[in-house]
Design a binder for these strands. Structure first.
Lengths: 167, 167
DNA sequence: ACTTATAATCAGCTAAACTGATTAATAACT
DNA sequence: AGTTATTAATCAGTTTAGCTGATTATAAGT
């Protein structure tokens, strides 16, 4: 660990986030995501899958009937990348590609029993990391943070949608 | 000279946030970052630079004296990628690589006048996007969100640091 | 029927992260 | 001192993810 060069005054108290970035929402959000997914990936490494795989499983968790393109939209991952993720999961026996009854171009992705079990198993380290990450916040703050993020994301998605409609 | 990826060809993004993901912090943070940086890149596209370039300029804004490795640490970008970003900015005349007085292996990155001007110019669309993104929140909520994110990020960085010390 | 659009796939390209090696300078050790 | 180990920046090579364009089969619109 190298000590910061010139303007070092206090003993060991270095603030990890330099003042230039503290006020920048883009930096804070990007850094939060980076740290969170990095830690989640580390915790999932034993499973052989990544957070992205987990996200795909999670999307299929409740109701099946999803196509690959649905996942592209909600996860914001490219179609070709989704293909590879689904390939991985299918190869591992965690999901199946079944033909869509009403549209035979598309697949209906469905979790296998092994897939449901794997998802449940992966949920444990994921929630543990969430818990640790959110530790600095009170329960009320956590709820508020989540609600605010949801509000921001939904609003931004709305805006994007209406923008692309005018094109 | 990597122009920001514009992602204009995305057809209807109709679904808001499906219920499976609404409770997942990882999803919300990842989505927020994705939307925000995507929009910022779009707004910066005219400048020929990306948010990453902007972030480098921003890190050098106040006090110079930064080495390339310092930027790697704070931005979480790989050394070789930082090199290319600095190459771009140097080629554009926005910063200079000067030899570090006390350590002649390292460079001291310093903004040129053109670099300062470019940074100020880029700040306008960046702040405009921040403003639009945060529109759904009240001023009080914005301040709280930012403070909470900072708290989370600093705590996560602390944890990462102490973990790597035990190695 | 004819045209257009769409779901999944494939092949090729670019950007970014990562690895390992190199060079020069510095730090650490004995 | 002299030897070794680290480190900053670079370069070269590999891998992964995103993007583009094309293909095939199906669907929808006129």
């Amino acid at each position: 660990m190298s000590a910061p060069p010139a303007n070092e005054a206090s003993p060991a108290v270095r603030s990890p986030v330099p003042p230039e970035y503290r006020g920048h929402l883009g930096f804070l959000v990007a850094k939060a995501r980076q740290l969170l997914s990095e830690q989640m990936d580390a915790r999932l490494s034993a499973s052989g899958y990544s957070v992205r795989h987990f996200a795909v499983l999670g999307g299929l968790g409740r109701q099946s009937g999803l196509r690959q393109t649905d996942l592209c939209d909600t996860l914001g991952i490219d179609r070709t990348t989704i293909m590879k993720l689904v390939d991985d999961l299918e190869r591992g026996g965690l999901l199946q590609r079944n033909r869509h009854p009403d549209d035979r171009r598309a697949y209906v992705l469905e979790l296998t029993d092994a897939g449901q079990a794997a998802h449940a198993r992966m949920l444990v380290p994921i929630l543990a990391e969430e818990e640790q990450f959110l530790a600095p916040l009170s329960p009320g703050e956590r709820a508020l943070l989540q609600e605010m993020l949801l509000r921001l994301v939904e609003r931004a998605l709305d805006r994007k949608q209406t923008n692309s409609q005018s094109t």
